[in-house]
Structure formats: C-alpha cells, structure tokens
Amino acid sequence: MKNNLVNAILSVALVLISISSFAQRGQLGTPEERATRQTTRMKEALNLSAEQETSVADINLKYAKQMQSLLETGGRNLKTARTAKSSMKSKDNELKEVLTKDQFNKYLTLKEDMMSQMKELRQQRQ
C-alpha cells in the first residue's frame, strides 16, 4: 500500500514536472488550447457522440484551468503533487459519468500509456 502511494505521488510529480518544463518552453499553450487538443484526441480515440464531446470538452477545460492555476502557484512540492493527483481523480470520476464503460476503460488505458511515454521521455532527458 505504501509503495502504491509512493508510486502515485511520483507519477503525479512526474506529470507536473513535465508539464511545467513544457510550459516554460511555451509548448503547452493556453488551458483552452490544451483542452481542445485533449478533446480532439479523445473524440477520435473513444468515438465520442456529439453530446459526449460537449461534456468532455467542458470537463477538459475545467481541469486544464485548474492545472494551469496549480502550475502557476503551486511550485514543485509534495502538496502540489497531491493536489494534482486529487484533481486528476476528480476529472476521471466526472468522465466516468459521461463515457460508456468501454470508453472509460479505453480512456484509462490511453492515459496509462501516455504516463509511460512521458516517464520514458523524462528518463531520456536525464
């Protein structure tokens, strides 16, 4: 259990560090641009209906704005990592209400793959 918590915190920290390093280089764009890119990827990967797309876009924008605020004010510390993890869990819960069971499972798989790719990129830079 303790290892799972440590792994989760490290994963969130990795995401925050990656996001902040991209943000410093200006590659992430605004929260609106990030949310639009996320929604487009999800629409294609999950075959979202028009109604789902609207809901997913709203959720993505809400959490992109939260993450932007966190990046700007939170710094790189354990409290920020925990807040980001909590925010991502809330986003997943909201998406679970909008997506079908199959879509949500595919979303989780895609999310896990993305985390693995980010981790590999981070390791390559070191």
Rank of each mutant, 00 (worst) to 15 (best):
A84V: 07
M88A: 15
R25Q: 11
R25N: 09
L110H: 06
Q52H: 05
M42Q: 12
R41N: 14
K106D: 05
I17P: 01
G75L: 03
L110F: 06
E33W: 00
K106Q: 06
L99C: 01
A35T: 11
K89H: 12
Q123I: 07
E72Q: 02
A64R: 12
A64P: 04
V6H: 03
L61D: 06
K101L: 12
E32C: 11
A57C: 04
N105C: 05
L46A: 03
K65H: 07
N105V: 09
N3P: 13
A35V: 13
E112R: 10
M114K: 15
N93T: 04
A81S: 14
N7L: 14
K62E: 06
Q38V: 10
E33I: 02
D58Y: 09
T109C: 00
I9K: 03
A45I: 00
G29L: 00
A8E: 11
K79W: 11
K106G: 02
A13I: 05
P31V: 04
M115N: 13
A45H: 07
K62W: 07
A35Q: 04
R122Y: 12
S90T: 15
A64C: 03
A45V: 12
R82L: 15
Q124D: 14
G74N: 12
Q124C: 01
E97N: 05
E97A: 13
A23H: 11
L14R: 01
Q117F: 14
L110Y: 03
Q126Y: 15
N3T: 08
K65Q: 04
V12E: 14
L110S: 03
R125E: 06
L110C: 01
R76L: 14
K89A: 14
S86D: 08
D92P: 07
L71D: 05
E44H: 08
T73F: 01
N4K: 13
K89S: 12
R34I: 10
G29H: 03
S87I: 13
A23M: 02
R41W: 05
L78P: 02
K43E: 07
E51H: 03
E53M: 05
L108R: 04
Q126G: 15
G29R: 00
K91R: 03
S55C: 10
I59F: 08
Y63G: 05
Q66E: 04
S49L: 03
L121R: 09
Q117Y: 08
Q66N: 14
N7V: 06
L110Q: 02
S20L: 04
L61Y: 00
L10T: 12
I9W: 00
T39K: 13
N3W: 15
Q24S: 10
M67T: 06
T30E: 07
A45E: 14
E32R: 03
M67L: 13
A84C: 02
M42S: 11
K111G: 01
L10A: 10
Q52G: 03
L48G: 01
V15C: 03
E72L: 02
K91M: 04
D58I: 08
Q68A: 13
A50G: 09
T30K: 02
K89Y: 10
N60W: 04
E120N: 11
S87R: 03
M1H: 11
L16V: 09
L71W: 06
D113L: 11
Q38W: 06
V56T: 01
V12S: 15
M42T: 04
